[in-house]
Amino acid sequence: MSTRLHMVELVTGTAADLGAVEQVMASAFDPRFGEAWTRSQLLGILGMPGVWLTLARVDGEAAGFALARAIVDEAELLLLATAPAFRRQGVGSALVRSILADARERGAVRVHLEVRAGNNAVELYRGTGFAKCGERRGYYRGKGGQVYDAHSYSIALS
């Protein structure tokens, strides 16, 4: 039986927080699927206009993160991960709600994301109002050269 977290602290992240992001990614993403980003990729995108990083902490420990960007009136959830020890305890949904609120504040009317077919995170996205709107064949390249489809989801912000 899992216990619900008492407090998820959400904070704006910077390049100085990439160690915590990498730690969460290393524990959350199975290398077979090629979903984790490198430090160079993270640093490159963080420097771009409209990009923001949100960290989730529980009792000071990195529990998850979300990376997003807004361009004109649309936003994209680029990357989201919850450390396995904190899954199904409200961390992921807190991050998604935060990204949606931030996107709305930045003028977005719709938020998009892509997720690997078969990824359990689909439950989280559907549960927060995202609907499937497309598919990209062979989008993800795994460590051993395998390819995996990506499913596109979006949500209209009101």
Results as ranks from 00 to 15, higher is better:
Y153R: 04
G90Q: 09
G127H: 10
K143Y: 10
L77V: 10
V11G: 01
G60F: 13
R87S: 04
R116C: 08
A101W: 13
K132F: 05
V24S: 00
L43W: 04
A117I: 08
I99L: 15
R126P: 02
V11R: 11
G44P: 03
H151N: 11
C133P: 01
A108V: 06
L43P: 02
A75E: 06
G118V: 13
P84C: 03
V122M: 10
R97G: 02
A103I: 07
G138W: 15
K143R: 15
V147N: 04
G13Q: 03
S93H: 11
R137W: 12
T14D: 03
E114L: 08
G13A: 10
M48N: 07
L5K: 01
E114V: 08
A121R: 05
W52F: 15
P31Y: 10
E105S: 09
E35S: 05
D149F: 12
G19S: 09
G134S: 13
R137L: 11
M25P: 00
V91G: 00
E114P: 03
S158C: 06
G118S: 09
A83I: 02
A70S: 15
L18P: 01
A81S: 05
E35D: 10
Q41I: 05
A150W: 14
Q41E: 14
V51N: 02
V21G: 02
A62V: 07
R39H: 08
V96S: 00
G134C: 12
F130N: 02
L46M: 13
Y140F: 15
R141F: 05
A156G: 10
A28H: 05
V11H: 04
A117D: 15
L55F: 05
G60N: 12
Y148C: 08
E22P: 00
R126G: 12
F86W: 12
R110C: 09
G44C: 09
F130H: 07
V51L: 03
A81H: 06
T14C: 00
M1S: 07
W52E: 08
A16Y: 03
Q23I: 01
W37P: 01
A16S: 06
A131V: 15
H6R: 14
H151F: 14
A70L: 04
T38W: 10
V72I: 14
R104A: 12
A81E: 10
A150T: 15
L46Q: 06
G13T: 08
G118T: 12
P31I: 12
G129W: 13
D73E: 11
L55D: 02
L5V: 02
L10R: 00
S98W: 08
A66R: 01
S154D: 15
R110A: 06
V51K: 03
L42R: 02
L124A: 04
L55A: 00
L46I: 05
L79Q: 12
F86Q: 01
E123G: 09
I155W: 07
E74Q: 15
A28G: 04
L79Y: 01
V109A: 06
R39M: 07
H6W: 07
P49G: 09
S158H: 10
A62F: 06
G64M: 04
L43R: 09
V24R: 00
A108S: 08
V21H: 04
R39E: 13
L18I: 04
A63L: 09
R87G: 03
